[in-house]
Each structure stands twice: as structure tokens, then as C-alpha cells.
Nucleic acid binder design. Structure first.
Lengths: 119, 119
DNA sequence: GTAATCAGTTTCCTTTTGGTAACCAGTTAC
DNA sequence: GTAACTGGTTACCAAAAGGAAACTGATTAC
């Protein structure tokens, strides 16, 4: 029993790392926008309603530091910046699917479980 | 390609649900403490350093609403409350393992990947 | 009466987060 | 020169989250 607990505890740091990367309101939305093909700052900004310039800027930096996206400056008129998703970001898709499946079942459990309401 | 995008978008709500349930600083720590066998408010509080009474109270309510734990009041001296994990909470273990695995690999990628530094 | 314990709640205050909008830099067009 | 577009940064203010400590209420013991 104590062993199980210690295994859980050792899971905590990596789990936190993952949640830092995909948690928050915007990170997944931004990643999806880039996966979808949006490459430029203003384009990404416009594709996500209610997302402000300031927050997008911060999130993109975080995501670049986490190697989920790359940032390339292209000189020309006007200077453009290209954001692209990385191979590493693709490894998130499996995690996202797991989170999605649990979320769907959880919602059923919380809202759709009629067997418990038969009082 | 547009299909892939729409699939991602439909994943968003369930993923958010899941992140709401396990995200944040304390929820997993509290769940682990209860999995470990801590049953009482003060016991859980003492088992997690830096966790305040106020936040624990709020988190326990959230977790009860999400059916991850049950709360039972036991009259006696003094009145005691028992928190226990549910069967439903056990379904999180698989999700946590996935998050852990991705976190471990991610950390390797970010900090331990020497093959890229050979410039 | 006082004291102590459990399980929280409430209050006050600080820190963090987030939004809005102005602003800067570089370049092209007029 | 001005305007317009890009990709952001900075400053200011409001909302939300979080910590510390006091407080409630029930009960038992003295």
C-alpha cells in the first residue's frame, strides 16, 4: 500500500510538467490553430476569439520553450514570423485523446448517469 | 486536413473537463493523500505541506462534486468527517500514467536531449 | 464556567492573472 | 512627411486566486 503511494508520488512531477504544457485556457487552442495551418501571429490571434495579443505572445514563448512550436523570422515586406508545430508536438495527440476519452466518460458519470436518480 | 482539425476541436470540451478535474496545484496531491488512506480533514491537511484550510475545503467540494471522493459525517465525539475515494476516481489512474509518461519523455526532450546540441 | 478537538467558514490583505489600449520598430506605398 | 501593415511590448487597471489568522459551533472533560 505504501509502495503504491510512493509510485503515485513519483508520478507527480512528470504529471505537473505535462499539465504545465497543455493546461490553461489557451495552449491547446493555439496548438490546434497551428496544427490547422495558421502560421502567423495575427492569423493565430484572429483564429481564436477572445485571445488577447499579450496572452498569445506569452503562450507562444512558453510553447516554443517546450519545443511544441518553432518560430522563424522571415525578412521581407513586411517582416513576417512563422510559427510551425514540431514533431514533438505530435506526441501530445495521444495524451489529448486519453484526456478526451476520460472527459467524455466523466461527463456521462456526472450528468448522464440515470441509474442513481431512481430514488 | 480540415477533418483532423474538427476532430481536434471536438476534443476540446472533454479535455477541458478532465483538466478541470485534475488540474491545479492541489487536486492530485489531495487525491493521492486519500488514496494513501487519509480519511479526515485535518489529516489530509497535515499530510500536504503548504496547503491551507481554505483551499483544501474548496478542493474537497470540487472533488466531491466530481464524484472522485465521498464525504460522510460521523456523529460522535468530536464530530468527524470521513473522506474516501470512489471507484470512479480509480479510472483516473490510467490517465495519470499517460500524463506521467509524456512528462518524463518531455523532460528528456527539453533537458536531456544531447543529440541536438552537437553543433 | 474554561479548555480542547474536529471541521470547516469568514475576513482581510497580498499576489497573480488578465484585459484594454497605447505604443515601438521596421518596411513599403504615396 | 503620413498611412498602413507586420509582430510584438509596455503601462495601467480590474478581477480572480491565495495565504494567514480569527472565528463559529458542536461536544467532551474538568
Amino acid at each position: 500500500m505504501k509502495k503504491e503511494h510512493k509510485e503515485c508520488m513519483s508520478a507527480l512531477l512528470p504529471v505537473r510538467d505535462t499539465l504545465d504544457v497543455i493546461g490553461g485556457k489557451w495552449k491547446l487552442l493555439i496548438l490546434i490553430s497551428i496544427w490547422e495551418g495558421n502560421k502567423h501571429f495575427r492569423g493565430i490571434e484572429r483564429s481564436i476569439p477572445k485571445l488577447s495579443t499579450k496572452v498569445l505572445s506569452k503562450e507562444l514563448k512558453d510553447m516554443e520553450a517546450n519545443q511544441l512550436i518553432t518560430r522563424t523570422v522571415i525578412n521581407g515586406f513586411p517582416v513576417r514570423t512563422e510559427y510551425r508545430h514540431t514533431e514533438h508536438s505530435n506526441t501530445l495527440k495521444k495524451v489529448i485523446m486519453e484526456l478526451q476519452n476520460w472527459g467524455i466518460n466523466h461527463r456521462k458519470k456526472i450528468f448522464g448517469d440515470k441509474s442513481e436518480i431512481s430514488n
